[in-house]
Design a protein around this nucleic acid. Structure first.
Ligand code: MN
Ligand code: MN
Ligand code: ZN
Ligand code: ZN
Lengths: 138, 138
DNA sequence: ATGAAGAATGCAACGGAAGTGCATTAATTA
DNA sequence: TAATTAATGCACTTCCGTTGCATTCTTCAT
Protein backbone atom coordinates (compact mmCIF):
# COMPACT_ATOMS: atom_id res chain seq x y z
CA UNK A 1 0.00 0.00 0.00
CA UNK A 2 1.39 3.30 -1.00
CA UNK A 3 -1.07 5.17 1.17
CA UNK A 4 1.39 4.63 3.96
CA UNK A 5 3.65 7.34 2.64
CA UNK A 6 0.78 9.72 2.41
CA UNK A 7 -0.28 9.02 5.95
CA UNK A 8 3.14 10.00 7.18
CA UNK A 9 3.44 13.02 4.94
CA UNK A 10 0.05 14.27 5.97
CA UNK A 11 1.40 14.42 9.48
CA UNK A 12 4.66 16.02 8.46
CA UNK A 13 6.69 12.91 9.10
CA UNK A 14 9.24 11.97 6.51
CA UNK A 15 8.50 8.49 5.24
CA UNK A 16 11.69 6.63 5.91
CA UNK A 17 11.88 2.88 5.46
CA UNK A 18 11.73 2.14 9.14
CA UNK A 19 8.84 4.47 9.77
CA UNK A 20 6.84 2.88 6.99
CA UNK A 21 7.44 -0.54 8.46
CA UNK A 22 6.46 0.51 11.95
CA UNK A 23 3.38 2.25 10.64
CA UNK A 24 2.38 -0.89 8.79
CA UNK A 25 2.93 -2.90 11.93
CA UNK A 26 0.71 -0.59 13.91
CA UNK A 27 -1.97 -0.78 11.25
CA UNK A 28 -1.93 -4.55 11.20
CA UNK A 29 -2.02 -5.00 14.93
CA UNK A 30 -5.40 -4.19 16.29
CA UNK A 31 -4.07 -3.94 19.83
CA UNK A 32 -1.83 -1.44 21.53
CA UNK A 33 1.82 -2.32 21.26
CA UNK A 34 4.87 -1.66 23.36
CA UNK A 35 8.34 -0.70 22.29
CA UNK A 36 9.43 -4.22 23.13
CA UNK A 37 6.73 -5.61 20.87
CA UNK A 38 8.07 -3.61 17.97
CA UNK A 39 11.59 -4.52 18.90
CA UNK A 40 10.80 -8.23 18.90
CA UNK A 41 9.06 -8.02 15.58
CA UNK A 42 11.82 -6.11 13.86
CA UNK A 43 14.64 -7.93 15.55
CA UNK A 44 17.02 -6.72 12.92
CA UNK A 45 16.57 -3.09 13.68
CA UNK A 46 17.87 -1.04 16.54
CA UNK A 47 15.82 -0.34 19.62
CA UNK A 48 16.68 3.34 19.71
CA UNK A 49 15.45 3.91 16.22
CA UNK A 50 12.19 2.21 17.00
CA UNK A 51 11.97 4.13 20.25
CA UNK A 52 12.38 7.41 18.47
CA UNK A 53 10.04 6.37 15.71
CA UNK A 54 7.27 5.86 18.23
CA UNK A 55 8.11 9.16 19.87
CA UNK A 56 7.88 10.85 16.50
CA UNK A 57 4.53 9.26 15.81
CA UNK A 58 3.15 10.49 19.10
CA UNK A 59 4.53 13.98 18.69
CA UNK A 60 3.05 14.25 15.22
CA UNK A 61 -0.32 13.04 16.50
CA UNK A 62 -0.24 9.94 14.38
CA UNK A 63 -0.33 7.68 17.41
CA UNK A 64 -1.11 8.03 21.06
CA UNK A 65 0.72 6.71 24.05
CA UNK A 66 -1.28 4.54 26.41
CA UNK A 67 -0.56 4.07 30.08
CA UNK A 68 -2.41 0.89 30.84
CA UNK A 69 -1.23 0.38 34.37
CA UNK A 70 1.52 -2.06 33.58
CA UNK A 71 4.15 0.63 33.65
CA UNK A 72 5.04 -0.27 30.10
CA UNK A 73 3.84 2.38 27.66
CA UNK A 74 1.80 1.11 24.75
CA UNK A 75 1.12 2.80 21.46
CA UNK A 76 -1.78 2.78 19.05
CA UNK A 77 -2.63 4.72 15.96
CA UNK A 78 -4.95 7.63 16.43
CA UNK A 79 -8.22 7.84 14.62
CA UNK A 80 -8.76 10.16 11.72
CA UNK A 81 -8.55 13.81 12.72
CA UNK A 82 -7.58 13.00 16.26
CA UNK A 83 -5.70 15.62 18.22
CA UNK A 84 -5.85 13.80 21.53
CA UNK A 85 -7.95 16.58 22.92
CA UNK A 86 -9.48 16.09 26.31
CA UNK A 87 -13.07 16.68 25.34
CA UNK A 88 -13.17 15.11 21.91
CA UNK A 89 -10.71 12.36 21.30
CA UNK A 90 -10.03 10.57 24.55
CA UNK A 91 -11.42 7.08 24.73
CA UNK A 92 -11.40 4.22 27.12
CA UNK A 93 -8.70 1.56 27.13
CA UNK A 94 -9.16 -2.01 28.17
CA UNK A 95 -6.47 -4.30 29.45
CA UNK A 96 -7.16 -8.00 29.56
CA UNK A 97 -5.58 -9.78 32.48
CA UNK A 98 -5.83 -13.06 30.61
CA UNK A 99 -4.23 -12.45 27.22
CA UNK A 100 -2.48 -9.37 28.55
CA UNK A 101 -3.51 -7.28 25.58
CA UNK A 102 -4.52 -3.66 25.73
CA UNK A 103 -7.03 -2.35 23.26
CA UNK A 104 -8.54 0.99 22.38
CA UNK A 105 -12.29 1.14 22.89
CA UNK A 106 -12.68 4.07 20.58
CA UNK A 107 -16.45 3.90 20.61
CA UNK A 108 -16.54 4.70 24.30
CA UNK A 109 -15.42 8.24 24.83
CA UNK A 110 -14.45 9.36 28.28
CA UNK A 111 -17.16 11.47 29.89
CA UNK A 112 -16.37 14.85 31.34
CA UNK A 113 -15.01 14.33 34.82
CA UNK A 114 -15.99 16.77 37.52
CA UNK A 115 -13.28 17.73 39.94
CA UNK A 116 -13.02 19.52 43.27
CA UNK A 117 -12.56 23.26 43.15
CA UNK A 118 -9.09 24.35 42.11
CA UNK A 119 -8.19 21.33 40.07
CA UNK A 120 -7.62 21.85 36.36
CA UNK A 121 -7.89 18.80 34.12
CA UNK A 122 -5.60 18.58 31.14
CA UNK A 123 -5.70 14.90 30.39
CA UNK A 124 -7.77 11.95 31.44
CA UNK A 125 -6.76 8.33 31.43
CA UNK A 126 -9.39 5.68 31.91
CA UNK A 127 -8.29 2.06 31.93
CA UNK A 128 -10.59 -0.83 32.62
CA UNK A 129 -8.95 -4.06 33.58
CA UNK A 130 -10.64 -7.42 33.19
CA UNK A 131 -11.41 -10.10 30.66
CA UNK A 132 -11.62 -9.13 27.04
CA UNK A 133 -13.94 -10.04 24.26
CA UNK A 134 -11.99 -12.98 22.94
CA UNK A 135 -10.98 -14.37 26.30
CA UNK A 136 -14.47 -14.31 27.81
CA UNK A 137 -16.54 -16.24 25.27
CA UNK A 138 -14.89 -19.64 25.39
CA UNK B 1 -0.27 7.20 68.88
CA UNK B 2 -0.86 3.69 69.93
CA UNK B 3 -3.76 3.30 67.56
CA UNK B 4 -1.21 2.43 64.94
CA UNK B 5 -0.75 -1.01 66.35
CA UNK B 6 -4.46 -1.58 66.36
CA UNK B 7 -4.77 -0.51 62.76
CA UNK B 8 -2.26 -3.13 61.75
CA UNK B 9 -3.68 -5.82 63.93
CA UNK B 10 -7.16 -5.18 62.66
CA UNK B 11 -5.86 -6.07 59.23
CA UNK B 12 -3.95 -9.10 60.46
CA UNK B 13 -0.58 -7.48 60.01
CA UNK B 14 1.93 -7.94 62.76
CA UNK B 15 2.99 -4.54 64.06
CA UNK B 16 6.71 -4.57 63.61
CA UNK B 17 8.76 -1.45 64.12
CA UNK B 18 9.25 -0.79 60.47
CA UNK B 19 5.62 -1.33 59.62
CA UNK B 20 4.55 1.10 62.26
CA UNK B 21 6.90 3.71 60.91
CA UNK B 22 5.76 3.23 57.35
CA UNK B 23 2.15 3.35 58.42
CA UNK B 24 2.78 6.59 60.26
CA UNK B 25 4.49 7.98 57.19
CA UNK B 26 1.51 7.08 55.03
CA UNK B 27 -0.85 8.66 57.52
CA UNK B 28 1.11 11.89 57.64
CA UNK B 29 1.50 12.25 53.92
CA UNK B 30 -1.72 13.26 52.32
CA UNK B 31 -0.46 12.31 48.88
CA UNK B 32 0.27 8.99 47.28
CA UNK B 33 3.84 7.89 47.79
CA UNK B 34 6.23 5.70 45.88
CA UNK B 35 8.64 3.13 47.16
CA UNK B 36 11.43 5.57 46.45
CA UNK B 37 9.68 8.19 48.55
CA UNK B 38 9.61 5.85 51.50
CA UNK B 39 13.15 4.81 50.83
CA UNK B 40 14.39 8.38 50.85
CA UNK B 41 12.55 9.17 54.04
CA UNK B 42 13.83 6.15 55.92
CA UNK B 43 17.29 6.24 54.47
CA UNK B 44 18.51 4.02 57.23
CA UNK B 45 16.30 1.13 56.35
CA UNK B 46 16.55 -1.31 53.54
CA UNK B 47 14.74 -0.95 50.28
CA UNK B 48 13.53 -4.53 50.20
CA UNK B 49 11.94 -4.33 53.61
CA UNK B 50 10.07 -1.22 52.64
CA UNK B 51 9.09 -2.80 49.36
CA UNK B 52 7.66 -5.81 51.12
CA UNK B 53 6.02 -3.65 53.73
CA UNK B 54 4.08 -1.86 51.05
CA UNK B 55 3.20 -5.16 49.42
CA UNK B 56 1.93 -6.42 52.74
CA UNK B 57 -0.16 -3.32 53.24
CA UNK B 58 -1.77 -3.74 49.84
CA UNK B 59 -2.40 -7.43 50.28
CA UNK B 60 -4.03 -6.84 53.65
CA UNK B 61 -6.20 -4.10 52.16
CA UNK B 62 -4.67 -1.45 54.32
CA UNK B 63 -3.39 0.49 51.34
CA UNK B 64 -4.01 0.54 47.62
CA UNK B 65 -1.58 0.67 44.78
CA UNK B 66 -2.04 3.52 42.34
CA UNK B 67 -0.95 3.48 38.72
CA UNK B 68 -0.86 7.17 37.92
CA UNK B 69 0.61 6.94 34.47
CA UNK B 70 4.18 7.64 35.47
CA UNK B 71 5.04 3.97 35.50
CA UNK B 72 6.06 4.35 39.11
CA UNK B 73 3.54 2.71 41.43
CA UNK B 74 2.26 4.89 44.25
CA UNK B 75 0.61 3.86 47.47
CA UNK B 76 -2.00 5.41 49.68
CA UNK B 77 -3.93 4.22 52.69
CA UNK B 78 -7.39 2.91 52.03
CA UNK B 79 -10.38 4.46 53.63
CA UNK B 80 -12.22 2.81 56.44
CA UNK B 81 -13.86 -0.45 55.42
CA UNK B 82 -12.40 -0.32 51.95
CA UNK B 83 -12.03 -3.56 50.06
CA UNK B 84 -11.03 -1.97 46.78
CA UNK B 85 -14.18 -3.28 45.21
CA UNK B 86 -15.04 -2.11 41.76
CA UNK B 87 -18.46 -0.75 42.53
CA UNK B 88 -17.93 0.69 45.96
CA UNK B 89 -14.45 1.78 46.75
CA UNK B 90 -12.75 2.92 43.58
CA UNK B 91 -12.12 6.61 43.38
CA UNK B 92 -10.48 9.02 41.05
CA UNK B 93 -6.80 9.91 41.24
CA UNK B 94 -5.28 13.18 40.23
CA UNK B 95 -1.72 13.73 39.16
CA UNK B 96 -0.39 17.26 39.07
CA UNK B 97 2.06 17.91 36.28
CA UNK B 98 3.42 20.88 38.19
CA UNK B 99 4.26 19.59 41.66
CA UNK B 100 4.25 16.03 40.40
CA UNK B 101 2.11 14.81 43.24
CA UNK B 102 -0.61 12.24 42.97
CA UNK B 103 -3.59 12.45 45.26
CA UNK B 104 -6.66 10.39 46.01
CA UNK B 105 -9.88 12.20 45.27
CA UNK B 106 -11.89 9.94 47.49
CA UNK B 107 -15.02 12.03 47.23
CA UNK B 108 -15.27 11.32 43.54
CA UNK B 109 -16.13 7.71 43.03
CA UNK B 110 -15.69 6.19 39.62
CA UNK B 111 -19.01 5.78 37.83
CA UNK B 112 -20.01 2.46 36.37
CA UNK B 113 -18.38 2.14 32.98
CA UNK B 114 -20.32 0.53 30.19
CA UNK B 115 -18.35 -1.73 27.92
CA UNK B 116 -18.87 -3.47 24.57
CA UNK B 117 -20.41 -6.91 24.65
CA UNK B 118 -18.07 -9.62 25.88
CA UNK B 119 -15.86 -7.44 28.01
CA UNK B 120 -15.87 -8.12 31.75
CA UNK B 121 -14.66 -5.35 34.02
CA UNK B 122 -12.76 -6.31 37.14
CA UNK B 123 -10.99 -3.10 37.95
CA UNK B 124 -11.16 0.48 36.84
CA UNK B 125 -8.43 3.05 36.93
CA UNK B 126 -9.25 6.68 36.37
CA UNK B 127 -6.44 9.19 36.47
CA UNK B 128 -6.85 12.85 35.69
CA UNK B 129 -3.70 14.75 34.88
CA UNK B 130 -3.45 18.50 35.23
CA UNK B 131 -2.86 21.25 37.74
CA UNK B 132 -3.76 20.57 41.33
CA UNK B 133 -5.44 22.62 43.97
CA UNK B 134 -2.33 24.14 45.48
CA UNK B 135 -0.55 24.74 42.21
CA UNK B 136 -3.44 26.48 40.48
CA UNK B 137 -4.37 29.25 42.91
CA UNK B 138 -1.19 31.31 42.90
C1' DA C 1 13.88 -22.08 80.25
C1' DT C 2 15.26 -23.95 75.89
C1' DG C 3 15.27 -25.41 71.38
C1' DA C 4 12.81 -25.67 67.07
C1' DA C 5 9.89 -23.56 63.61
C1' DG C 6 8.41 -19.65 61.38
C1' DA C 7 8.34 -14.78 60.16
C1' DA C 8 10.66 -10.55 59.19
C1' DT C 9 14.70 -8.24 57.80
C1' DG C 10 19.07 -7.11 55.36
C1' DC C 11 22.32 -7.73 51.68
C1' DA C 12 23.51 -8.55 47.08
C1' DA C 13 22.59 -9.38 42.68
C1' DC C 14 19.57 -9.61 38.57
C1' DG C 15 16.67 -8.00 34.79
C1' DG C 16 13.63 -5.16 32.16
C1' DA C 17 12.98 -1.08 30.07
C1' DA C 18 13.59 3.93 29.29
C1' DG C 19 16.66 7.30 28.10
C1' DT C 20 21.15 9.82 26.41
C1' DG C 21 25.56 10.98 23.96
C1' DC C 22 27.95 10.59 20.14
C1' DA C 23 29.67 8.85 15.89
C1' DT C 24 28.05 7.46 11.36
C1' DT C 25 25.22 7.45 7.46
C1' DA C 26 21.53 9.21 4.55
C1' DA C 27 18.93 12.92 2.63
C1' DT C 28 18.32 18.09 1.50
C1' DT C 29 19.45 22.14 -0.08
C1' DA C 30 22.28 25.90 -1.49
C1' DT D 1 29.37 19.24 -5.40
C1' DA D 2 29.93 20.92 -0.89
C1' DA D 3 27.61 21.98 3.23
C1' DT D 4 23.94 21.47 6.26
C1' DT D 5 20.50 18.92 8.42
C1' DA D 6 18.00 14.76 9.65
C1' DA D 7 17.91 9.89 10.69
C1' DT D 8 20.05 5.86 12.28
C1' DG D 9 23.04 2.64 14.99
C1' DC D 10 25.93 1.55 18.86
C1' DA D 11 27.29 1.81 23.54
C1' DC D 12 26.41 3.02 27.81
C1' DT D 13 23.81 4.73 31.82
C1' DT D 14 20.16 5.02 35.06
C1' DC D 15 16.22 3.81 37.35
C1' DC D 16 13.38 0.76 39.68
C1' DG D 17 11.10 -3.49 40.64
C1' DT D 18 12.08 -8.06 41.94
C1' DT D 19 14.22 -12.29 43.76
C1' DG D 20 17.36 -15.54 46.38
C1' DC D 21 19.50 -16.41 50.29
C1' DA D 22 21.63 -15.69 54.63
C1' DT D 23 20.72 -13.67 59.11
C1' DT D 24 18.14 -12.04 62.89
C1' DC D 25 14.08 -11.80 65.50
C1' DT D 26 9.61 -13.80 67.27
C1' DT D 27 6.58 -17.33 68.55
C1' DC D 28 5.45 -21.51 70.45
C1' DA D 29 5.74 -26.29 71.98
C1' DT D 30 8.25 -29.08 74.95
MN1 MN E 1 -6.35 4.35 22.33
MN1 MN F 1 -6.52 6.39 46.12
ZN1 ZN G 1 -7.89 -11.21 26.55
ZN1 ZN H 1 0.46 20.43 42.09
Amino acid sequence: MQDLEKILENNNVKPTAMRLLVLQFLLDKKVAISLTDVENYFDKSDRTTLYRTLQTFVKSELAHKIEDGTGIPKYALCEENCHCEIDNDLHLHFRCTNCNETVCITDYKIPTISLPKGYIAEDVNLVVKGICDKCSHN
